[in-house]
Amino acid sequence: MGTAKQTKSLSVGGGFVDFTVKSGKSSALVYFIVINVLAFLYSAFSLAISLLKRANSKNLELPFSIADLLVTVLLFSANSAAAGLSVIAEDGNSNLLWAQICDTMNTFCAQMNASIVLSMFASLAYFLLVLLAILGFYRRSF
């Protein structure tokens, strides 16, 4: 998503104008990028800490599970924001006079949609990790 960009020359009023669409111009897509980068950094950090403190990992289970839950919520939130923008780019919004852009900027839209799909897989993986951690806590408590 961070590299999604496309420029097209379109005919306007008898001349040609270059239009550029890129992910950095939309706050929803910037939010999507930032949350995915933070989720990656957190994952790398928690993996390193878990491997280094393997013997003392009992003290870290609850804090990491809570952080995993927060990352999952943020990932789903970012995916929703980006998906909403994707729908508007695909269909437009006639009430607000927003034109659809995916018929013209198809490469940008394909990159954006692929990023959202891949991030949804990561979000589902995080959700399953949180679910497994909760089931592990439940089994140990009884």
Rank of each mutant, 00 (worst) to 15 (best):
L38S: 11
S115T: 05
S46M: 10
A78T: 09
E90W: 06
S65T: 12
F16L: 14
I35Q: 11
C109K: 02
L10M: 11
M112I: 06
A28L: 14
I33A: 09
T7N: 03
S86F: 01
K25S: 06
A48G: 07
M105H: 13
S43M: 08
K53C: 09
G13H: 11
S119F: 01
C102R: 05
A133T: 08
V73I: 13
T104D: 13
I49S: 04
T72G: 08
A44D: 13
N79K: 05
L69F: 10
S50N: 12
G24P: 08
N79H: 04
L60F: 13
G92L: 12
F76A: 09
C109S: 08
Q100F: 12
D103V: 06
L60R: 14
T104H: 11
A110G: 07
I66Y: 08
F16D: 14
R54F: 02
I88C: 07
A83C: 08
F16G: 06
I35D: 08
S9R: 12
T107C: 02
Q100R: 10
L124W: 13
E61Y: 15
L69R: 04
A81H: 02
I116T: 03
L10V: 08
G92P: 01
A114D: 15
A48N: 10
K5V: 01
I116V: 09
N59L: 15
N56V: 11
L60N: 06
A89L: 14
S50K: 14
T107K: 06
T72K: 04
G14R: 13
L69E: 02
A4C: 11
A4K: 04
S77K: 03
S119V: 03
D18L: 09
Q111M: 04
F16P: 00
A4M: 07
P63N: 07
N56C: 09
S26R: 10
K58T: 07
Y42M: 02
S119P: 01
S23L: 05
L97M: 09
S23V: 03
L69G: 05
K8V: 07
A110T: 13
S9Y: 15
T107E: 13
I66D: 00
D18C: 02
V87N: 13
A78P: 01
F45P: 00
D18S: 08
K5N: 04
L96Q: 11
S43T: 03
K53D: 02
S123W: 05
T104K: 07
S115A: 14
S46N: 06
G84Y: 01
A44S: 14
S46Y: 07
N56P: 00
S77W: 03
Q100T: 07
R54A: 04
A110W: 00
A28H: 12
A78V: 08
E61H: 14
S65K: 14
